[in-house]
Design a protein around this nucleic acid. Structure first.
Lengths: 114, 114
DNA sequence: AGGTACAGGCACTTTAAAGTACCTATTGCA
DNA sequence: TGCAATAGGTACTTTAAAGTGCCTGTACCT
């Protein structure tokens, strides 16, 4: 029995962690293969990527589709429940952009070109 | 020079961490004294509370007002910039509530009465 | 025949996050 | 007189998060 003092803690348990929001932000743009996700996140390790994907899957926000072929092909996408996070993800992304702009001069935050 | 691969990483740097979103969710309801925050978060340690508040202050999202009196009185509130997080915080809180309801039966997530 | 891409698994180590314990100072109250 | 409340600071320890390195198997390309 998981107990929360404030409802937002439940949300943090699902999308908290260093990579989950980033992964979800990529998947919001559409279904992605494992290798595509990996390329979009140059600094994530294979282990962390798999681990975070498994947890997101267990929480029902993403779906894993395995194609029975060789070499392996696996696709990840948001589930319907995952799409309910869209508002949060969108506003987080938008805020991040503004924050970078705001702090570009004094704190030199920059966005690496992809 | 901080570099981000995707803008949302900048947002996570400000509101990431175990306690920051929770603290901000309390402050969105109004100015709070240190002891009030502490009582609202029974499991946070004094050290973590202070640390997170300092970091939020350094990022310009909250303000610290010290009253020169004894015993000490310190109040925390959102800055104007901090209020720009309102949309994010609101949707996070709302999502958390729905997530608890959704998973109450099978995973027994519950909200502790405060 | 050897290398690459693909999607991982597993054991181990490192590092960062968080927690514990103990310290400051002052006033009012029982 | 001694304790509670207030808002911390600091040093040390613990625990959880993340990273490293090495392993699987197969089809395609050179």
């Amino acid at each position: 029995m998981k107990k929360y003092n404030i409802p937002v803690e439940a949300a943090l348990e699902v999308i908290g962690g260093k990579w989950k929001v980033v992964i979800l932000c990529h998947l919001i743009k559409g279904t992605k293969r494992t290798s595509e996700l990996k390329r979009s996140m140059p600094t994530i390790t294979q282990k962390m990527l798999t681990q975070q994907l498994r947890e997101l899957e267990a929480d029902g926000v993403i779906e894993r589709k395995i194609y029975q072929q060789i070499p392996p092909k696996v696709e990840y996408s948001l589930t319907e429940y995952g799409w309910s996070l869209k508002e949060i993800l969108d506003s987080l992304c938008a805020w991040g952009e503004k924050h970078i702009e705001r702090n570009y001069e004094d704190k030199s935050l920059v966005l690496v070109e992809g």
